[in-house]
Design a protein around this nucleic acid. Structure first.
Lengths: 218, 218
DNA sequence: CACGGAATGGACTTTGCGGTCCCAATCTCC
DNA sequence: GGAGATTGGGACCGCAAAGTCCATTCCGTG
């Protein structure tokens, strides 16, 4: 968006392996720090120190803090989607959904509910102040929901889910329960609300099962 | 909490009507600005200007920015609870819940889903950086949920809700759906996800009704 | 109506942090 | 092996925003 590529002779900047590694170190540190402190409360000096780099490196790889944050949105989005793909792309049954729920709950309980969702927190903090970040986050949520709805579609196609179930809406509802659960758990410093929220959403999906399997959610 | 009241002769600071009004003006301005820009992105000068006061007033009424923010947490919490009491304390039927849902959706749709929930946004922004604010917010959420669960208790007592319904869990689930809905709506700049989320939670509650009234949710 | 404390305006100070710059080290390719 | 690039360190700059201070005005009270 900054450079016009027009017909500049050979203007592309070469980038070495070392450079890539540094950039990665910066993003990794930003990811870590901003997860626990929030985006706005994390300074570039914090990141510089944590990533063992220097100011010039930060500005060598990112135009300014906003660009770094945007890169982080992309980075974190990719991480989450990758992780979620692992847990969702083979989803074919309700019990698979329960396992998915349990994994998220367990991960969050390691922090006693603190910090919330890496994407959700950024969405709240950035949506009202960086349109570009907001739209990337919105797309990432959509992709995440699609992983879920694809699984629900498979369940519907295989007959596990009734025909009148709406995978897209069920996925949106589940995502909202997840995000709301993260938020309440973070405020309470306790995973319990997140469990209740996810169980509600799962019960709702369960009500669309063709054979109402009554297994408990954990 | 700052001053020990012990037995100091007559040490309490008198406060005039005018002083109260100014303090109120400051809080009102802070509330407005921080709602749209977020807490950290709003400066004291913004607030000073919007409230038609001066720096000395800000520091006359609040020790520092953190104290102002904490006062805002209390202020906003009181506003929300007051508003919600109006919509929930007479709750006795499922259709009352639907009306409550519609009011929230409509209010949020006026902003096209932007800004989210005044309490939820603060919870995300502050939970990881101000323990006192976090715990106040957590208590406010609990009080809000109690307004809901009280209504559900009344519904259960009157026989509208089955005995095996758990009002507290239903209320937590509904609150999570609401907060998650706000979050997704804010990221998408579209109320739709909030509607889907609330409808899911309401459907879940509906599944506990004794006579499954089939009226649509709007 | 005078006195004291509260309320107010706004200039001033301080500081944290984003952003710039320059020089050195290291790499790459001929 | 040397020219020209990229990578790197870190001092420095500038500004915006938090926070201080004091002179002045307002107002309730004896």
């Amino acid at each position: 968006m900054a450079d016009e590529q027009v017909a500049a002779p050979t203007k592309q900047r070469r980038i070495s392996q070392r450079g890539i590694a540094t950039r990665e170190r910066i993003l990794e540190a930003a990811n870590r720090l901003m997860f626990v402190r929030g985006v706005n409360a994390t300074t570039l000096d914090d990141i510089r120190e944590a990533s063992q780099t220097s100011k010039s490196q930060l500005y060598h790889h990112f135009a300014d803090k906003q660009e770094l944050v945007r890169a982080l949105v992309k980075y974190r989005g990719a991480l989450v989607l990758q992780r979620e793909r692992g847990g969702l792309e083979r989803l074919r049954s309700f019990s698979g959904l329960v396992r998915w729920r349990n994994a998220l709950v367990q991960a969050n309980s390691l922090n006693n509910g603190k910090y919330g969702c890496g994407l959700g927190s950024m969405a709240v903090e950035l949506s009202d102040q960086d349109e570009q970040a907001r739209s990337m986050l919105s797309e990432t949520f959509a992709a995440w929901e699609k992983l879920i709805s694809d699984g629900l579609h498979r369940m519907r196609d295989s007959g596990a889910l009734r025909q009148d179930a709406d995978p897209e809406k069920l996925a949106t509802g589940l995502m909202a329960a997840l995000q709301g659960g993260y938020l309440l758990a973070n405020a309470a410093h306790d995973v319990a609300p997140m469990e209740v929220a996810l169980d509600m959403a799962l019960d709702h999906i369960k009500s669309f099962l063709t054979e109402p399997a009554g297994e408990p959610t954990r």
